[in-house]
C-alpha cells in the first residue's frame, strides 16, 4: 500500500495537490460549521444574557436602594413627629403643673390673708377691749390718785411727790394701787 513519495521541487511546494485541497476544504467546512452554528451563537447568547442579567440586577439594586431611602425618610418623619408630640405633651404638662402650682399658691395665699385678717381683727378687737378696760382703769386710777393727792393735805409738797412716786412704782410693778395708803 505504501508507495514512495517525496517533496516536489521548486514552486511545486506551493501548489497543493488536489486531494490536499479537498481535505483542507472539508476540514475547514466542518470546523466552520461548528463555530458558526454552535460556538459563536452560544457565546454571544451567553454574553448578552449575562449583560441583561447584570443590568437587571443593577436596576433592581437601584430600586431597592430608592425604596430603602424612602422608608428611611418616612421613619425619620415619624420619629420627628413623635419627638414633636412628646415635646408638646411635656410642654402641656409643664403648663398644667404651673397652673396647678399657681392655683395652689393663690389658694394658700388667700387662706393666709384670710387667717391674717382674722388674726388682725382678733388683735384689733382685743386691743379695743384692752383699751376700753384700760381706759376705765386709768379713769378710776386717775380718780383715785386725785383723791389721794387731795386727801393728803396739799401743803406738804414732799408728801405729794412721794405719793406720786409710789403710785408710779405700783403702776410699773403691775400691782393696782390699792387704797392701802388711803387715809
Amino acid at each position: 500500500m505504501i508507495t514512495a513519495a517525496g517533496a516536489p521541487a521548486g514552486i511545486g511546494l506551493f501548489i497543493p495537490p488536489l486531494y490536499d485541497i479537498v481535505l483542507s476544504v472539508a476540514c475547514l467546512a466542518v470546523i466552520a460549521f461548528v463555530v458558526v452554528k454552535k460556538v459563536v451563537p452560544t457565546y454571544l447568547t451567553v454574553l448578552d444574557e449575562r449583560t441583561a442579567k447584570i443590568e437587571g440586577g443593577l436596576r433592581k439594586a437601584a430600586e431597592a436602594e430608592a425604596q430603602i431611602a424612602e422608608e428611611r425618610a418616612l421613619a425619620a418623619a415619624q420619629l420627628e413627629q413623635a419627638a414633636a408630640d412628646a415635646a408638646r405633651a411635656k410642654q402641656e404638662a409643664r403648663q398644667d403643673a404651673e397652673a396647678i402650682v399657681a392655683d395652689a399658691r393663690r389658694k394658700a395665699s388667700a387662706e393666709a390673708e384670710r387667717l391674717l385678717a382674722a388674726a388682725q381683727a382678733q388683735i384689733a378687737a382685743d386691743t379695743k377691749a384692752a383699751e376700753v378696760a384700760l381706759r376705765a382703769d386709768i379713769g378710776s386710777l386717775a380718780t383715785e390718785l386725785a383723791e389721794r393727792i387731795v386727801g393728803e393735805a396739799l401743803t406738804d409738797s414732799a408728801l405729794a411727790g412721794r405719793v406720786v412716786d409710789r403710785f408710779l412704782d405700783e403702776l410699773s410693778s403691775g400691782v393696782a394701787p390699792t387704797g392701802g395708803e388711803r387715809p
Binding site: 500500500m1 505504501i2 508507495t3 514512495a4 513519495a5 517525496g6 517533496a7 516536489p8 511546494l13 495537490p17 488536489l18 486531494y19 490536499d20 479537498v22 481535505l23
Partner: peptide, 25 residues
C-alpha cells in the same frame, strides 16, 4: 530533517486525485 517529511507516501486511496490519504492527511 528534510522537506520529504511533509510528503510521506500515501497509505489509502493511493492514486485517487480526490481522496488520497497520507500521514499528514
Amino acid at each position: 530533517p528534510s522537506l520529504d517529511d511533509f510528503f510521506p507516501p500515501a497509505f489509502a486511496f493511493n492514486g485517487s486525485n480526490f481522496f488520497e490519504l497520507n500521514r499528514l492527511s
